[in-house]
Nucleic acid binder design. Structure first.
Length: 340
DNA sequence: TCGATCAGGCGAGTTACCTCA
DNA sequence: TATGAGGTAACTCGCCTGATC
């Protein structure tokens, strides 16, 4: 059984059909594909390679004629097709080709000064190349910058309230930071502000991995250490994967129930056929024949080693079957018979 | 060309801290 | 006010990959 997952637009091809390990981040909807194969090659694949890393298999490694089922688990509130990355000034080109360079970005120009996590150290300034305002100026700078931010985004009262709450958050964080610094304690963990989280979230939608340049630019824009940005993306990927796993489990559980039910029904049908065999021996004078049905072309063909029924197509109108045939969902069929 | 070494990145697992009911 | 649960930032470890020698 093969499970292909992608984060992104539902109709997109499954990741295991593409030669890519990248997760599509255009939206946070869950798109899950399930392919059941009978060749058992999963066991042969081993533990190395991209498939292990991302749970994705290359399409050319397993070839199946049956298209995988696709389950769309999109969020109730769909993510806008065009996330406001350009407004946020992401440090890399978006799909629209905008927002190249953080300095021209929306927050890129204004976000300086709301560092909630640290007091700038000399090494940080060297490493990040970002001049950080003094601790005492953080809050006022933030309020000034975000008042502009609100005005620029045309926010209403609710937005103003949220921004104010974020300012409080930031102030609290700054206060904690200052306290820790004064006490000479090393800060273990501090909360990111809502703005920082939202900005990182938007960035993650664009790219779920960062190259060093993007990391540095983001860190500068958000006044975070590059390490913090890196850790945030790592944790974000982990959360995404965890969520996917939960969805996978739920889906596979339902799928298992469905297969169990189908198996039960087929067993019942088999019993009926056996009963028919005893009551209508006429049918049993036919040579032993295996009936198979291709789920893709929906043709039932007979295969037999002897007798008149070999290779006959029972879908032709003049041929009838005294019983119903169930179309299996998955089959290791090849479509060699389809061309004929 | 091949192997050893190193740096950097990432996933997985864990810890520690914070918030909230 | 104390407490437990849940969320999450940060850390550690091991593995992989690419660059360099």
């Amino acid at each position: 059984m093969e499970l292909g997952l992608s984060l992104g637009d539902a109709p997109k091809p499954f990741a295991f059909l593409e030669k890519t390990r990248k997760i599509n981040n255009k939206s946070f909807g869950f798109c899950m594909g399930l392919k059941v194969g009978f060749n058992g090659r999963e066991e042969d694949k081993g533990e190395d390679g991209e498939g292990r890393r991302e749970g994705i298999t290359n399409g050319d490694e397993r070839v199946s004629a049956d298209p995988p089922l696709q389950l769309d688990l999109l969020p109730l509130a769909p993510v806008p097709r065009n996330p406001p990355s350009s407004q946020l000034g992401l440090p890399w080109p978006t799909e629209n080709g905008s927002s190249e360079g953080g300095s021209s970005g929306y927050l890129g120009a204004h976000a300086r000064g709301f560092d909630v996590n640290r007091l700038p150290s000399a090494t940080d300034q060297v490493d990040d190349g970002a001049a950080v305002s003094s601790p005492n100026s953080i809050v006022s700078s933030l309020q000034m910058e975000f008042s502009r931010y609100r005005a620029g985004s045309g926010g209403g009262s609710k937005r103003d309230f949220e921004a104010t709450a974020n300012e409080v958050d930031t102030e609290r964080a700054s206060s904690r930071a200052s306290d820790d610094e004064e006490n000479g304690l090393t800060r273990k963990k501090l909360r990111l502000s809502k703005e920082q989280s939202a900005f990182l979230e938007e960035s993650f939608k664009e790219h779920n991995t960062l190259n060093p340049k993007q990391k540095l630019t983001l860190a500068k824009q958000l006044n975070l250490r590059p390490r913090q940005v890196e850790v945030w993306f790592q944790n974000r990927r982990a959360r995404t994967k965890l969520k996917q796993t939960e969805v996978d489990c739920e889906y596979l559980k339902r799928w298992c129930e469905t297969l169990t039910e189908e198996n039960r029904r087929l067993q019942k049908e088999l019993q009926e056929l056996r009963a028919l065999k005893t009551s209508h021996p006429f049918y049993m004078q036919l040579p032993a024949t295996t009936l198979t049905m291709c789920p893709s072309c929906e043709r039932v063909v007979t295969t037999s080693t002897a007798g008149a029924g070999a290779g006959a197509d029972i879908n032709t109108p003049k041929t009838t079957t005294p019983f119903s045939l169930t179309k299996p969902r998955f089959s290791p069929f090849s479509h060699a018979h389809q061309s004929s």
